[in-house]
Design a binder for these strands. Structure first.
Length: 565
RNA sequence: GUCCCUGUAGUCUAGCUUGGACAGAACGCAAGAUUGCGGAUCUUGAGACCCGGGUUCAAAUCCCGGCAGGGACGCCA
């Protein structure tokens, strides 16, 4: 693979002592100014010349390969013009050869573990989980494509007061009936029912506490009920996971490990890592990190949230020996993870220095407030169904002769792409309002827009009856729009790297939008299929390469590319 | 009270880590293109860095002080 920035860097470094790096190379705001630019402000200081003079001296002295057609001084910038023919030849050859592996990172022998989405077994997955699942998919794909081994793990919050609430309501009011709907929703209904009843009957609160004690004491009937309802919830989650494309390597139910943290904490107490406060709680002092004092084990010996996370990480390490750990959890838990990671370090966990909390903000619905007033909770399945419906209308509008089965299939693919893309184009930390209509629109910054662009390319490729050859003439691809497209293609590997490094799938989303717009512009101005055979052949290769990159980009985001829409 | 996050055109959003050339899109709005491979596309235009200081040759970006919104600071998860 060729790296143009590196070529500039090495040639410049040959002639000056201070080392510049690829990060110093910029992309000029206007393509007429050049393809790459080296700002000479920093160098000027060290050379003790004005930036403009420095640029001049540099230009007179450096040699770059034939990938560059011209070097120009524009004020304090040294601007490089890429030889478009050479670039076209290399990039297209590279894409053609590697196909969907174009841009893939080298194998790294590093295992990355990602925790997502972490459901509670008392109610169905909601909007927050949707964001979590979608981010999780993208992150796993990004890391995998970048050459890492990935492990996706779940945390199942299957015990505690909130779980008992659904259980108690079921026990009292359900008359033992079996689920007559998606089982996690069935369970969730009893959670809602409990919240209603407890307002009129405050004594239910005491019953909940009694039930939790029974559960803790392994009361047979309570445990049976618990098992039954949990399995319903999990059965329901499984279906939702599948629909959203979540593939889990291993799920860790809280009930299995929540008591194991005690030993770990007591060992830490012996080693002097933790201490006891006056009430007998075991705490850790993180004042030095400005995080205060944190209880890690209650005085009565029961564990709390953080105790479990400590032991869970240890269990997971025994299972997978991960080198890096990423938690995808809402941003209200930033403080929790800061503390957790500090304790990891103190415990000398091998992965402690490479932990990341991917925190994300809230998703709102435009009519969200109204819905909650009506008691309609906005959950993942609901949203997916609604998007499916909206997509179906669009599909039907365009295709009169499709079978019902095919319509359903496309509606699902388009509906899910609308959700996923809409979520992934935003910075994870930001709250946003999910506008369903906007997300499914075929114009604008949407999943369907990208899919549609891809389908158009596929349609052209289909019309080109001849076999795709690997031969093309890069000298024919010199129109402004063609150069731009090739430039975008050449940026794909770098974009993947950046997106991975910064934990931001949105960088891929933005890239795809730019690439698609660039293609649409090209398509609008220049005809691909024409009488000129050589030209047609080369243009076909170009758009074929574009289609490969769009498809791979979508795959990383967990979105399917469709040949027809 | 302490700490963290966010504040960019009518709306929504990128850029802020590492300061540099006219702050980049989308929707909406206004004007226009298309006798073509899918008119669901494209082009052009108007329009923005919360406020006040500071550092700098250069600040949306860094520092200080405000203002507004959200969150954390529970033996809740």
């Amino acid at each position: 693979m060729i790296d143009l920035k590196e070529m500039i860097v090495s040639s410049v470094n040959k002639h000056i002592n201070n080392n510049i790096s690829a990060d110093d190379i910029e992309i000029p705001p206007d393509p007429n100014l050049g393809d790459y630019a080296l700002p000479c402000f920093k160098l000027a200081k060290e050379c003790k010349k004005s930036p403009n003079e420095t640029a001049k001296v540099l230009m007179d002295n450096i040699q770059v390969g034939d990938y560059f057609s011209e070097i120009k001084i524009i004020g304090p910038y040294l601007n490089f013009f890429v030889s478009s023919v050479k670039l076209a030849e290399n990039i297209l050859k590279d894409v053609l050869k590697k196909k969907e592996n174009y841009g893939r990172g080298q194998e790294k022998d590093t295992t990355v573990m990602i925790e997502s989405p972490g459901p509670n077994t008392n109610k169905p997955l909601h909007l927050g989980h949707v964001r979590n699942m979608v981010l999780g998919n993208a992150l796993v794909n990004l890391y995998e494509f970048s050459g890492y081994d990935t492990v996706r793990v779940d945390i199942i919050n299957d015990r505690g007061v909130h779980i008992c609430k659904s259980m108690l309501a079921y026990k009292k009011y359900a008359d033992n009936k079996e689920p007559d709907k998606k089982p996690d929703h069935f369970v969730g209904d009893f959670y809602v029912l409990f919240s209603k009843r407890v307002k009129q009957n405050p004594e239910l609160e005491q019953e909940i506490r009694d039930m939790l004690v029974k559960w803790e004491n392994n009361d047979k009937k309570t445990r049976e009920l618990w098992k039954k309802m949990n399995s319903w919830a999990i059965e329901g989650f499984k279906e939702t996971y599948e629909r959203f494309g979540v593939e889990m390597d291993k799920a860790y139910p809280e009930s299995k490990h929540y008591e194991k943290g005690k030993k770990l904490v007591l060992d830490g107490l012996k080693n002097g890592l933790f201490e006891k406060d006056e009430e007998g709680n075991i705490i850790i002092d993180l004042e030095e990190k400005n995080l205060g004092k944190k209880v890690v084990l209650r005085a009565d010996g029961t564990s709390i949230y953080i105790t479990q996370d400590l032991v869970l990480a240890d269990l997971r390490y025994k299972d997978y020996k991960m080198d890096k750990m990423i938690y995808i959890v809402g941003n209200e838990q930033i403080y929790h993870f800061k503390v957790l990671f500090e304790i990891f370090k103190k415990l000398k966990y091998p992965f402690a220095d490479d932990c990341y909390h991917l925190a994300y903000g809230m998703i709102y619905l435009p009519e969200g407030k109204m819905k909650s007033r009506q008691g309609k909770v906005v959950d993942a399945d609901n949203l997916a169904d609604e998007m499916h419906k909206l997509a179906k209308i669009e599909v039907k509008k365009r295709n009169k002769n499709l079978s019902e089965k095919e319509i359903e299939k496309r509606a699902e693919q388009i509906g899910m792409s609308a959700i996923k893309f809409y979520i992934l184009k935003y910075d994870p930390m930001k709250d946003f309002t999910y506008n369903q209509k906007e997300s499914i629109s075929f114009e604008g910054e949407t999943g369907p827009y990208i899919q549609y662009t891809y389908a158009r390319i596929k349609s052209i490729l289909k019309k080109y009856k001849k076999n795709l050859s690997k031969e093309f003439n890069p000298k024919l691809l010199i129109k402004k729009q063609e150069k731009e497209l090739i430039k975008y293609l050449s940026n794909f590997p770098e974009t993947v790297k950046k997106s991975t490094k910064e934990y931001k799938p949105s960088i891929i989303s933005r890239y795809l939008l730019d690439l698609c717009q660039s293609f649409n512009n090209y398509y609008h101005i220049h005809r691909i299929l024409s009488e000129k055979k050589e030209l047609t052949k080369s243009r076909i290769i170009l758009i074929y390469a574009v289609s490969i990159v769009i498809k791979q980009g979508l795959n990383i985001l967990g979105i399917e590319a469709l040949n027809e829409m």
